[in-house]
């Protein structure tokens, strides 16, 4: 691959006795959308969360192997985990706005990382709400509680919030699964726009969504990496029997 943004080498993740990810080695291309697919329980979300070290939060997790983001091993003991998470944003399965106003939600990250000036904050908030396609709907009520937004709006707010820390990578854990079709479409369109500037990795169990969005596909099954490759090759000429079966909907 010409330009891997993230490369994973021999990644193993154990939850206590459960071997959740088995020796994964794969590279994720820069400024493209990579879709991680596979039946539920195959380790998709674990894989995604190991890219920004959120897996560590689960008690009894053991991790071995390397995850390099632009050559930096994010599991190295010298690395500041908050810095990694700042560089790699996450859009979770259901929208989880923070318990504060719309404005403060978007400003939360920039404030953490030291942005103080009122005007700069205002600008950041506006820019990222625009980027998430939410600005027009909320510009008159920026200081209303985020909990009052609809689920679709909340998810876009979470997107804006994630973008506001100016990450290089955006992770999405089935980011549309809790939304109605219109909102889901909205998010998908945003993701396609955003890949100009960001490397995007999404987990999805919807094959059609993967076909619509993905440039690169990774197929996991029971914690193992079965097959990966550019989307066109993957869907048109799958190499593995298990991949063909999955694409045909036999799992």
């Amino acid at each position: 691959m010409a330009n891997p943004h993230i490369s994973v080498h021999n990644l193993n993740v154990f939850y206590r006795d459960h071997h959740a990810l088995k020796d994964l080695t794969v590279e994720l291309p820069e400024r493209q959308i990579t879709a991680i697919i596979g039946p539920s329980g195959c380790g998709k979300t674990t894989f995604l969360k190991s890219l920004n070290r959120l897996v560590e939060l689960v008690e009894g997790t053991k991790i071995s192997g390397k995850v390099l983001v632009r050559g930096l091993d994010i599991y190295h003991s010298d690395v500041d985990v908050t810095e990694i998470r700042k560089r790699i944003g996450l859009l979770s399965q259901r929208p989880h706005p923070l318990p504060m106003s719309i404005y403060d939600n978007v400003a939360f990250g920039p404030r953490l990382h030291g942005l103080k000036g009122r005007q700069e904050l205002d600008r950041t908030v506006e820019d990222h709400l625009r980027a998430a396609g939410l600005w027009d709907e909320v510009k008159d009520r920026l200081h209303a509680p985020a909990s009052r937004l609809s689920a679709g709006q909340q998810q876009r707010l979470c997107l804006a919030r994630g973008l506001a820390v100016e990450p290089e990578v955006l992770l999405g854990d089935e980011p549309t699964s809790a939304l109605d079709p219109m909102s889901a479409q909205h998010i998908e369109r945003r993701l396609l726009d955003l890949k100009e500037n960001y490397t995007i990795v999404i987990v999805t169990h919807i094959l059609r969504q993967a076909r619509r969005l993905a440039d690169y596909v990774i197929f996991l099954y029971l914690g193992e990496l079965v097959e990966h490759g550019p989307a066109a090759d993957f869907f048109n000429h799958p190499q593995e029997a298990r991949t063909r079966a999955y694409i045909r909907g036999e799992f």
């Binding site: 959120l54 939060l57 908050t82 990694i84 979770s92 989880h96 939360f108 919030r161 994630g162 992770l171």
Partner: peptide, 23 residues
């Protein structure tokens, strides 16, 4: 997941505790 959202933005545990959990 709420705590994870804060962590994913690069918040430390302290920041997550004081600004998100307490609120």
């Amino acid at each position: 997941e709420l705590k994870e959202s804060a962590y994913a933005l690069g918040a430390t545990r302290l920041e997550t505790a004081m600004r998100v959990v307490v609120r």
